[in-house]
Simulated scan of single mutants.
Amino acid sequence: MRKQPWAVIAWTQVSRRSESLAREFGACYFRLSRVDRPRALILVYLARNFLWTIAWLLWRRPRVVITFHAHPLISLCGLMYTSLFRKSLIPDVHTAGFLDYDFFPARQLSLFVWKRARLVLVHNEAAREYLNEQYPDLGEKLFVLEDPLPRIDVKDPLPKGTRTSCTYICRFSGDEPYREFLQAAEGLPDMDVYVTGNISKVPGLQTEFRSSHIHFTGFLPDQEYFRRLAASDFLVALTTRPYTLMSAGYEALSLEKPLLVSDSEALRSYLGPLASYCSNTVESIRAGLQTLQTGVPRQKKAWAQLKQEKIRNWASKKQK
């Protein structure tokens, strides 16, 4: 049996936040994949993940377990282990955990787990206020911890072209207005637009948007992905979720890149006036793209100062 002081557990395809938390806390990272459809297969994967996670926890015996709380079962799994062996559970609550699963019995199950956890991590102050209003019993258990800024080291940067280029960081998920973005980008043929993410999730989309200045990169390995971001003049990240702080925001800040994001209280609170904001409509997105395309100063010094401020703030919270 191998003992490990801290563990971070995720049931997802990719979670940069979970990876970063594991690195910062010196924790062992355990990830299992998941599926979103069909329903019968979802149940099979949930049962498999539940059993594998219990077995892994019994093997590793961590003192502190941080769970990627989107689906409540992952934290219930952690609670069973930590209750049995008197260890500590810290659910890391993603937006899906309190918006997508806000129905019976998932809502009640989440609250049952959260009330018995040592802490409940949320990603921003707006999410904390929302959960505090919905679940006043949680009280001081709610703790705001943004993502640690990623350590991005681009050793072999891509050559920069002669035209303005932007990268739209996308996963083609239900909360991303990717069609609106593509419609907006189609009207800007003098700018190279790169779109990341697994486009096969949306059959026919690449055929629908065939403009020569729009380039679908597919899902990129980390080093290629960061090379693409570093070569861009600015980045774009959009979401319809009101309480989400997207990984793209942290990546842009780490790279000190101008950023166009959806206008939300959570994003404005974290990024402040340096970012550019838009609503998730074709017209607003196109206006935001044009504003950055026409040469808004990079404000590199201000981005660098904000970056260092966020690094210091995260280090301070980590000690708590």
Results as ranks from 00 to 15, higher is better:
Met191His: 10
Val64Trp: 12
Val113His: 01
Pro189Tyr: 10
Trp314Thr: 04
Leu235Asp: 01
Arg210Lys: 15
Leu255Asn: 01
Gly218Tyr: 03
Ala127Cys: 03
Tyr168Met: 10
Pro72Asn: 10
Arg63Ala: 15
Ala302Cys: 02
Val35Trp: 00
Gly272Glu: 08
Leu145Trp: 00
Leu79Thr: 01
Arg312Val: 01
His71Asn: 13
Val296Asp: 15
Phe104Val: 14
Val195Asp: 09
Leu79Pro: 00
Arg17Ile: 11
Leu292Gly: 05
Phe143Tyr: 07
Arg312Asp: 06
Trp314Ser: 10
Val120Tyr: 02
Trp59Ile: 15
Ser33Tyr: 08
Trp59Cys: 10
Ala252Cys: 08
Ser110Leu: 12
Leu76Trp: 04
Thr294Tyr: 03
Asp137Pro: 00
Ala55Met: 12
Arg286Ser: 04
Arg268Ile: 06
Tyr225His: 05
Leu76Ile: 06
Lys320Pro: 01
Val154Ile: 09
Phe25Tyr: 12
Arg60Gln: 13
Leu21Pro: 00
Ile74Met: 09
Asn313Tyr: 08
Arg86Asp: 02
Tyr250Pro: 09
Phe226Ile: 15
Leu32Ala: 14
Leu43Tyr: 12
Arg34Leu: 12
Val64Ala: 04
Arg63Trp: 02
Arg31Val: 13
Leu79Val: 00
Lys201Met: 07
Ser254His: 09
Val64Pro: 00
Phe85Tyr: 12
Ala231Cys: 04
Tyr270Met: 06
Ser284Glu: 07
Ser247Asp: 15
Ser269His: 14
Ala302Thr: 04
Val202Cys: 08
Ala266Gly: 03
Gly218Ala: 09
Gln108Ile: 05
Gly288Leu: 13
Ala184Lys: 12
Gly249Asp: 06
Asp36Ser: 01
Arg2Gln: 15
Val8Ser: 12
Lys155Gly: 07
Glu251Arg: 09
Pro203Asp: 05
Arg107Lys: 09
Pro157Asn: 03
Leu121Arg: 05
Asn49Pro: 00
Arg128Tyr: 09
Ala55Ile: 11
Leu158Lys: 05
Lys318Phe: 11
Ile285Asn: 03
His71Lys: 08
Thr164Glu: 13
Val122Gln: 02
Ser33Phe: 14
Leu145Thr: 07
Arg298Asn: 07
Phe85Ala: 06
Pro242Trp: 03
Glu140Cys: 00
Arg107Ile: 06
Asp153Leu: 15
Tyr225Lys: 03
Trp114Ala: 09
Lys317Asp: 13
Pro148Asp: 05
Tyr101Val: 07
Val44Lys: 04
Phe181Pro: 06
Leu289Val: 10
Glu24Thr: 14
Cys77Leu: 03
His213Tyr: 06
Arg163Ser: 11
Met1Asn: 05
Trp6Ile: 14
Thr82Pro: 00
Leu229Gln: 10
Glu24Asp: 14
Glu129Leu: 15
Pro62Ala: 14
Gln183Ala: 15
Arg39His: 08
Thr167Leu: 04
Met1His: 05
Trp114Gly: 00
Gly249Leu: 06
Ala252Ser: 10
Ile90Pro: 02
Leu76Ser: 10
Gly295His: 08
Lys300Met: 11
Glu140Lys: 02
Lys301Ala: 12
Ala106Pro: 00
Leu149Ile: 13
Ser254Tyr: 02
Cys170Asn: 10
